[in-house]
Simulated assay, not measured.
Amino acid sequence: MTSSELRPCQDERAALRLLHDGELDLEGRLVDASNTTLRGIITLDGVTARCVYKPVRGERPLWDFPDGTLAGREVAAYLVSRATGWDLVPPTVLRDGPFGPGSCQLWIDEPEETEPLVGFVPADAVPPRWFPIAAARDDDGAVYALAHADDPRLARLAVLDAVINNADRKGGHVLVGPDDRIYGVDHGVSFHVEEKLRTVLWGWAGRQLPPDVAELLDGLAGQVTGALGDELAEHLTVSEVAALAARIERLRAAGTFPQPSQEWPAIPWPPI
């Protein structure tokens, strides 16, 4: 690229302006995605960045998410992440694009040498300070463990997922950016009014929330009833915003990380 390239750790306001107002040229489609997911290059005032564009018209109808759009929930997840101050979701906007309105999110490039923080490892060789979550076997019968690192950055992501009721936190949706920050992506099936938390980040289940998290939830509760709630109302239903506030209150009252449900699968498929 001949122009300067925006990195995710740069000014957030500049990133949002680029995503919202920049010229979007598509590079291709991510074929593994269940809904239309396109990668593109976005340019504005000599600054470029790669992005992910998910047009609303490419969304497959979901019987259990009949209201709103997946694109709107992508933006809502970013707004909640921004309100926490943890910035776990890359800058995301709703904008018009080559295939109509959709979410547009800053692309996160993982350095080639990055070690994954979630994955399948031999059951007898789970790394130190990793949590085994579930058992599995490969085609030859070898035993593996689905596991993740005991990393405070992942713990924050687990809290965010509990807040937004993320029904699809796969290991492949956890990225480590070039600035060594954790990012969560793909939040189109979040914010349901019923409990649907499905995640691979169960390592802290039932444990006490860190003091800073409890304090943050206090502040977040107030934001949902104020300006943040007004922003979310542009992308979520009234019931979904109310359910978000109720989940925050339950987390505050419990003071612990949530436990896996016994009523629905607690781990998404595929998990990675």
Rank of each mutant, 00 (worst) to 15 (best):
R13L: 14
D11E: 15
T92V: 07
V56G: 04
V193A: 12
T84N: 02
N165R: 03
A243S: 14
L201K: 00
A205C: 10
G85N: 08
R29P: 03
D109Q: 11
T48V: 12
D140Y: 11
A205N: 06
A227K: 11
P271L: 12
R39A: 10
E59H: 12
G222L: 06
V56L: 09
P270T: 07
I108E: 00
Y144A: 01
D218R: 13
R17P: 12
I108A: 00
P8I: 09
L19C: 10
P127V: 06
P8S: 12
I267C: 11
V89T: 01
A83Q: 08
H173W: 04
E23P: 04
A227M: 10
V176I: 15
L79S: 01
V224I: 14
R252K: 14
V75E: 00
W204C: 08
W86K: 00
Y144F: 15
E240S: 12
S103R: 01
T237F: 03
L44M: 13
A155D: 03
A227F: 04
Y78A: 00
E74R: 08
D21S: 15
A33C: 10
G46W: 02
P210C: 08
P128T: 14
L30G: 04
A83F: 04
P55V: 06
C51P: 06
A33E: 14
V121G: 00
G255P: 08
R73H: 12
L175H: 07
G203Y: 01
P111N: 09
A242R: 13
Y183I: 00
P116W: 02
G100Q: 09
P258M: 12
E194L: 14
V174Q: 01
K170W: 05
